[in-house]
């Protein structure tokens, strides 16, 4: 089944106002940057965005925030973004903060047909308020429900034409679980190769989870915290 779309515009067809979107990435690492720019161009509004973070002011999901396209964010950590803070404090933006492991598992569960699961994370905190509690092996757990999305937009390193995906290094993060949880999953990739060019033993996301694939036109891949060692100081030339 050929999943390849000719460009980002064709890949994002059908995304409209009031939809729920999942967007992969951790910080600015492994985000579908070309698709996010296209969402800005499309001008779709009142979006509910499920993403671990919310980008920075002028990059990543920060671009959608600036344009007031997001109604609600579901995330685990949203620092590093002044516009986010302003909209949240003024009440323009709804925010649902979820422990990171619960967020990942809720996406995985959504894609795996598991409606809910118990986790110890957040027990005894305000996250547990209003949630069912049950004790297993003497330890209290809270019930968390699964998450799904109208569209999941993920970023992978390579795809084949069948939609099989391979991620690079820690740019994998939330992308595989979000790919599973979208009614329609769109993969933005750096390179599309013919079917058969990827070793089937080394596929991260099997193509069954992916409906559309496109090659991003430009990858800026911005670095949030550039931390390095100096060669000379470390005695290496």
């Amino acid at each position: 089944m050929n999943k390849v779309k000719k460009n980002v515009a064709e890949a994002l067809e059908g995304i409209g106002d009031n939809m729920t979107l999942m967007l992969g990435g951790f910080g600015l690492c492994g985000i579908p940057e070309n698709a996010i720019k296209q969402l800005v161009l499309l001008g779709v509004r009142n979006l509910t965005c499920i993403s671990n973070n919310a980008g920075v002011d002028d990059y990543g999901l920060g671009l959608l925030l600036q344009n007031r396209q997001i109604k609600k964010m579901i995330s685990s950590y949203v620092g590093e973004n002044d516009e986010f803070e302003r909209q949240m404090l003024s009440g323009e933006l709804e925010v649902d903060l979820i422990p990171q492991g619960s967020l990942a598992e809720r996406c995985r569960a959504g894609g795996a047909g598991i409606p809910a699961f118990y986790t110890p994370a957040g027990y005894g905190t305000e996250i547990a308020e209003g949630k069912e509690t049950k004790v297993f092996d003497g330890k209290p757990h809270i019930l968390e429900t699964c998450l799904t999305a109208d569209y999941s937009i993920v970023k992978a390193w390579k795809a084949d034409t069948e939609g099989n995906l391979v991620y690079k290094a820690t740019a994998m993060n939330f992308n595989p679980v979000m790919a599973m949880a979208g009614k329609i999953t769109i993969a933005e990739v750096e390179e599309i190769v013919p079917a058969g060019a990827l070793d089937p033993s080394f596929i991260h996301t099997p193509g069954i989870f992916v409906q559309r694939v496109f090659q991003g036109a430009v990858f800026e891949k911005r670095i949030e915290q550039r931390t390095t060692r100096n060669r000379e100081e470390n005695g290496i030339r």
């Binding site: 290094a169 911005r222 470390n234």
Partner: peptide
């Protein structure tokens, strides 16, 4: 591992503090 040497940072390789590693 440790931070990369100057010029060898990889945007796809970070830790949970979003630092290049």
């Amino acid at each position: 591992g440790p931070f990369p040497f100057d010029g060898e940072e990889d945007a796809d390789l970070i830790n949970a503090g979003k630092q290049t590693i």
